[in-house]
Design a protein around this nucleic acid. Structure first.
Length: 859
RNA sequence: GCGGGCGUGGCGAAAUUGGUAGACGCACCGGACUUAAAAUCCGUUGGACCGAAAGGUCUGUGCCGGUUCAAGUCCGGCCGCCCGCACCA
């Protein structure tokens, strides 16, 4: 008897796959095989890889290996999201060169990822920080610019004071920078923007077509895009000028009480020039935080600006104009008309400043004579009152009529407003893709000509943590204007790294194309990605930007992909979590320096007591990550892959525990021992079973094996890896302990082991190959087609049916499948365990559900 | 506040979508092997009760109610937890 040695077996089989070029994806649609593109969100090369990362890739790899066995031409690539702040931080902290630091990390991480035995086509590896990747990005940007999908404007931006750069709206979380956690400030800067809003409607509507995306993610995108239908119209200012407003409730226009402007609305600012108290108000409003708590606590305050506007339906009716801190300059036109009776926020404000509250919508069942607004605004539908020509109309009809009237008077029109805003992509950073633009005093903003791309980063920069190293570089930015030849300066901003990751999935389809981002036909043949796997944290950011990018690439002629959808199927996986530990002094302790016994922890080295903290996502900062390399050395990649996919459903977090790992380890050994003990070649697929295999224990085992095939197949198809794994345990448990000298049973066990090996192969590919070879089967399991269950063996011809009396189970009967109802009824009623419960009762009804259950209702 | 999800043994979880609740794993306990331990293998394990045992009875999926022959699953109302968005006019 031998023991399974992963240290020998795992590298051996990885070599075998490499020699066989097993994972090389040929041209799409080659060999007449349908294509299948599996992709896991590519990693940032931080340098450290821990077991938590493994789960994401293990899931994708199960799908890739399974689809491959099912006869698909599978594309499963890997690359590096290699630009970003940590490289600059490393430069700052220990003088590392960002490029060297990044490339070294990639080397280390690639090797570690390869230890996992992933079925990756490494020939397609890309790194976004290399010019042969980003030069195409620069070319695409220029095409977007030409098409009007990229533009430059002075915009108020979210400024992260710690990272010293601009953040996109999507990167501001609770008013804080998503990475630094610092409160975001507002600054006005010249910015490059991507016109995401050009596709707002399509980005929203097409979500309906993404039926293999989690509803949660679609909902988040719907909310983020935030479509509201309504009207925009103008108020004429008494004494000249206009104020534009957007409203979803034009039906309540006769309930208007005042107009409110954002503190930084142009008119507010203009008035502030002559009125210091308004200027003071603006300054105070600007100080207000934007975090959840701040908004919750902040009182609604305003100031009367001392101007009036004319009501659009009655020029003789004047409304006061206020500036109010709850009006957002970034939504609509930064101004609104307030109808306190039917909007809670307007009501609070009106009560505070004693402004009129006039109800114009009568709720059903209320009397117009007595209806009044107290502390709560009425926001529901009803019948219009106090509204002149709208009186008596339903809210719905009044809305249409009000818009008609606005149109007729030339004051406004129906419109759709989106919460979604354009994507600001300029970052004041060194380690990013340079924006290929030259600023010339004479010619203005000029694109770098295509034949001069790429614009590469200078290697000799000083990174000091203040400002943009590109801007302070002595020579890099000084160039001559490509148009007039005069003195000019390069744009020193670089792209948000989310730009890099918005098209990498397309680059993988044609990763070595030097002339274009990718061949349009090849990319369109592989795309969309059939199965994308990644974290829920990208539900809005990366996934929305990528959807924008594929549309922009399509409309600029790069990618003939009609739908514009990059990812047909999306799966958002849960994290791997682990207990955290702290020393008495409060420092985080890595798990390998802590011993836990009976719920108490001590530091291994010193024996000092340690504190057991919360269960958190594995991370460097909390030191609760289990290093991948150490783990694989001790247990092997298969144990890791098996463990992270077992027990918890893949969309949920899984907690890393040593005990759980032991369970996976034990299973590996059990499988190996069973195969090793078998000691005979296994029958191949299609071999005829020997006589006697159609009865008794041999038949039972064959049925168990084939049912396992059906079940595991279904589970993998439906992303239920934890259940697929439990099926493997069941099959393992079904193997007979001893088979005596029964040749039929020997044959059935060989078949069971062969099928077991095939079923676990997507999860534990190394062990599967080792078992395949030990069972004397030809070739590699990785090249074997997925097993098909014999329907004759998966069909049950005898079923066990429970018999209930008044809903309580009293007996079981074994019946041939599909037995006629009256026969079943007879058997149930005459069952000797059922009769006592019917004693003295009258049978009212007997419910027979074929092959399922019998329920006798008696009283 | 708005939107979405969830609540099942000591723990992670299953449950053919209305049909035997707790598959499978972990942990625990008992047993075998061993001088002993580790490893391995076998077995028990939702709770309460009856029984010497075989076995049996009752009860049980956050709480209250409803629909149904039948509810973890459907409906109504609570309670609790998690996630997303949030002064969006």
């Amino acid at each position: 008897m031998s023991r399974y040695n992963h240290r020998e077996a795992e590298p051996k089989w990885r070599d075998a796959w490499a020699r066989a070029n097993a994972f090389r994806a040929p041209a799409p649609n080659a060999d007449g095989k349908p294509k299948y593109y599996v992709l896991e969100m590519f990693p940032y090369p931080s340098g450290a890889i821990h077991v938590g990362h493994g789960r994401n890739y293990a899931m994708g790899d199960v799908v890739a290996r399974y689809k491959r066995a099912r006869g698909f031409n599978v594309l499963h690539p890997m690359g590096w999201d290699a630009f970003g702040l940590p490289a600059e931080n490393a430069a700052l902290e220990r003088g590392a060169d960002p490029q060297q630091w990044t490339l070294t990390n990639i080397e280390v991480m690639r090797e570690q990822l390869q230890w996992l035995g992933l079925s990756i086509d490494w020939e397609r590896e890309i790194a976004t920080c290399l010019p042969d990747y980003y030069k195409h990005q620069q070319a695409m940007f220029l095409a977007f610019w030409e098409k009007g999908l990229a533009y430059r404007k002075a915009a108020k931006v979210n400024w992260d004071p710690v990272d010293q750069t601009v953040l996109a709206n999507e990167q501001v979380v609770d008013g804080k920078g998503w990475r630094s956690g610092a409160p975001v400030e507002t600054r006005e800067l010249e910015q490059w923007m991507f016109r995401v809003t050009a596709y707002a409607d399509d980005l929203l509507a097409a979500l309906n077509t993404l039926d293999r995306w989690p509803d949660k993610v679609r909902t988040m995108q719907i909310n983020w895009i935030g479509k509201s239908a309504g009207a925009k119209f103008r108020f004429e200012i008494v004494g000249g000028g206009e104020i534009d407003v957007f409203t979803t409730r034009p039906d309540t226009l006769f309930g208007a009480s005042f107009v409110a402007l954002a503190p930084d609305h142009p008119l507010t600012r203009k008035i502030a020039e002559s009125r210091p108290e308004v200027a003071k108000f603006i300054a105070e409003a600007a100080q207000l935080g934007t975090s959840e708590a701040d908004i919750e606590m902040a009182e609604k305050v305003g100031i009367d600006l001392g101007v009036s506007v004319k009501h659009p339906f009655d020029p003789s009716w004047e409304l006061p104009v206020w500036a109010a801190n709850f009006v957002l300059s970034s939504y609509g036109s930064g101004a609104l008309f307030a109808c306190p009776a039917h909007d809670q926020r307007d009501l609070d404000f009106a009560r505070k400043y004693d402004l009129p509250v006039k109800p114009v919508v009568l709720p059903p069942g209320e009397d117009a004579a007595t209806f009044a607004i107290g502390k709560d605004a009425y926001t529901g539908p009803g019948v219009l009152i106090n509204s002149r020509f709208l009186d008596g109309l339903s809210s719905e009809a009044a809305l249409t009529a009000a818009i008609e009237e606005l149109k007729k008077r030339g004051a406004g029109e129906a419109t759709t407003q989106y919460r979604l805003r354009d994507w600001g992509v300029s970052r004041q950073r060194y380690w990013g893709c340079p924006i290929p633009i030259i600023h010339c005093a004479t010619c203005g903003v000029v694109g770098v000509p295509k034949d001069q791309l790429p614009v590469t980063l200078p290697a000799d920069v000083k990174i000091e943590g203040v400002g943009n190293p590109l801007a302070s570089h002595p020579t890099w930015k000084h160039v001559s204007c490509p148009t007039c030849g005069g003195k000019a300066e390069r744009e020193t901003d670089t792209f948000d790294t989310f730009v890099d990751s918005s098209w990498y999935f397309a680059r993988f389809t044609d990763a070595h194309n030097n002339d274009a981002p990718f061949d349009p036909q090849i990319a369109a043949a592989w795309l969309p990605v059939d199965q994308y796997v990644g974290g829920i944290e990208h539900a809005v950011l990366h996934l929305l930007y990528s959807r924008f990018f594929t549309r922009a690439m399509r409309d600029c002629g790069f990618l003939p992909l009609n739908s514009g959808e990059p990812f047909a199927g999306l799966f958002t996986q849960g994290m791997v979590t682990h207990e955290t530990y702290k020393s008495a002094a409060g420092a985080w302790l890595p798990p390998e320096e802590v011993d836990v016994k009976d719920g108490a922890a001590i530091e291994t080295a010193t024996g000092a007591p340690a504190e057991i903290g919360g269960i958190e996502k594995m991370s460097k900062s909390k030191k609760n990550a289990v290093a991948l390399g150490d783990f694989i050395e001790e247990y092997g990649a298969d144990v890791l892959r098996w463990f992270v996919l077992s027990d918890s459903p893949p969309e949920k977090d899984v907690q890393w525990t040593d005990a759980g790992v032991e369970g996976a380890w034990r299973f590996v050994q059990r499988v190996w021992t069973a195969i090793d003990d078998h000691g005979a070649p296994a029958p191949q697929s299609g071999d005829a079973p020997p006589p006697g295999a159609d009865a008794g224990a041999a038949l039972a085992l064959r049925q168990a094996s084939h049912r396992a095939v059906t079940a595991v197949t279904e589970d993998i198809e439906n992303f239920r890896f934890n259940r697929a794994i439990s099926r493997a345990y069941e099959l393992m448990n079904a193997l007979p302990k001893s088979i005596g000298d029964d040749p039929a049973l020997l044959w059935a066990r060989g078949e069971a082991l062969r099928l077991l090996v095939q079923l676990i192969a997507p999860f534990m590919p190394h062990l599967a190959e080792e078992g395949w070879a030990r069972l004397g089967l030809p070739g590699l399991v990785v090249d074997a087609p997925w097993p098909a269950a014999d329907p004759g063996l998966t069909q049950q011809n005898v079923v066990t049916v429970p018999v209930q009396v008044n809903g309580k189970r009293r007996a079981e009967i074994e019946i041939p499948k599909g037995l006629a109802e009256d026969k079943v009824r007879e058997m149930a009623l005459s069952h000797d365990r059922v009769a006592p419960f019917l004693d003295g009762l009258t049978i009212r009804k007997v419910v027979v559900v074929t092959d399922r259950i019998v329920n006798i209702v008696a009283a």
